[in-house]
């Protein structure tokens, strides 16, 4: 008997994009708060939490859409790679990370500036890419249980 979950591949893709969009929004907001505190804004932990929460409804949906588009290509590639070459969790996480890396990196030549403040430094950029890996990992986790 199949161990079916409540999520179809489409639902898993949506969940992965939503998780990634949420994480990207969190990383970006935290990066902005760190930047402001570096110039003596003195934002408290509670203030930072409110700031992050206020950003979520505006930023996460947009970033989830961008992630979803990237994941469409990335998960197709991950599916191919995981058949013979790489372990399935690794393949999806790596391709999710590459998708976000590509999306964020592509913004620079298009706009000639870095739209996401978090992407302006190596640490923030790494966390953005890690968010993509989390999305990829979630997708493979949800879909593997359907097999």
């Amino acid at each position: 008997m199949q161990n079916r979950t409540f999520l179809t591949p489409l639902g898993s893709w949506v969940a992965a994009a939503l998780l990634c969009g949420t994480l990207l929004s969190l990383v970006n907001s935290i990066s902005v708060v760190i930047g402001l505190n570096s110039i003596n804004a003195n934002i408290s932990v509670l203030g930072a939490a409110l700031f992050i929460a206020n950003d979520l409804p505006n930023l996460a949906p947009v970033l989830a859409m961008v992630s979803g588009i990237g994941f469409t290509i990335a998960f197709t590639l991950a599916n191919l790679l995981s058949r013979n070459l790489i372990a399935r969790p690794m393949a999806y996480a790596a391709c999710g990370a590459i998708a976000i890396f590509t999306a964020v990196a592509a913004m620079h030549p298009i706009f000639e500036t870095t739209l996401l403040p978090a992407a302006r430094g190596p640490i923030g950029f790494s966390f953005l890419v890690a968010s993509g890996a989390c999305g990829g990992f979630l997708y493979q986790h949800l879909t593997s249980r359907q097999l």
Binding site: V32, N54, D55, L59, L115, P117
Partner: peptide, 21 residues
């Protein structure tokens, strides 16, 4: 700028929680 602003980022994200500082 950028401690206090009445604007938001083009993405819709906040730039600062403050309109005055």
């Amino acid at each position: 700028w950028p401690l206090a602003t009445f604007g938001v980022d083009y993405s819709g994200a906040q730039i600062s929680p403050f309109t005055e500082f």
